[in-house]
Amino acid sequence: MFEPYMLDAWIVATLVALAAGCAGYFVVLRGAGFAAHALPMAAFPGAALAGLLGIARFYGLAVFALGGVAGLAWLKRAQRPDAATALVLVAMLGLGALFLSLSGQYSNAVYALLFGQILGVGAADLPPAFGIGIGVPVVLLLCFRPLTYSALVPDLAATRGLSGAGLDLLFLGLLAVTSAVALPIAGALLVFTLMVGPAAAARNLVRAPLPALGVSIILALLIAWAALALAYLTGLPSGFFVGTLSAAAYLAARLTRRLSP
């Protein structure tokens, strides 16, 4: 599994795990689980449309994911009921399926995009992966304190001039590009688990903010590497392993905390 042609897959998996472990810490801290679930679904048709138009799939994914951020901001302001939001998400999945069937490579592509297939990663995926693997952690670290403060006590943060809405938008934007790069690897339905699983496990293992962020990143890396190796060995989709390993990490961490005094 360390053949030269696998090198791209290892690099992309590592970079995606760096970004997802870091973004996931804030997803859990800021209670943004819903956005982390919704944005990859909104991005899904973008990959299919990019395929139809013959452009790199990252651009399609990123445009649709950022469109999803605008949609979430609007839904929040308009205080739409949950039902409307859920319907929009299902419609996005349907739209993606339509684009894929138009492009004539329906079943394989749907499978890979919904459930993740890291073995399909190629050289074209490297630049965006480097972009988010380095850019997302750096920006999040620069905003570490304001993102934490405004998540814990929005009122107090506002007295110090922090705009909750502005920080939300910045964070969701980072989440969108992270989802766009992670989606082909973990799958539209499972990207969410790579973000939330390691972060939720980390906070059961350590109590202080920076160490929790560190543990979240390390767990995300371990899960991504293990998922890649297992996908290679078994031929099953990598997203399946990302999902189950994330859930297992969380359960193990909870159990550890429960059992330790």
């Binding site: 620069l142 814990l152 350590v206 903010p209």
Partner: peptide, 23 residues
């Protein structure tokens, strides 16, 4: 209750919670 923020981290945020930059 699971928030990974200790009492001392919370007090510190009063000093620099609004500051951008590496923590």
């Amino acid at each position: 209750p699971d928030m990974p923020i200790r009492a001392r981290d919370f007090v510190e945020l009063g000093l620099n919670g609004h500051r951008f930059g590496f923590p």
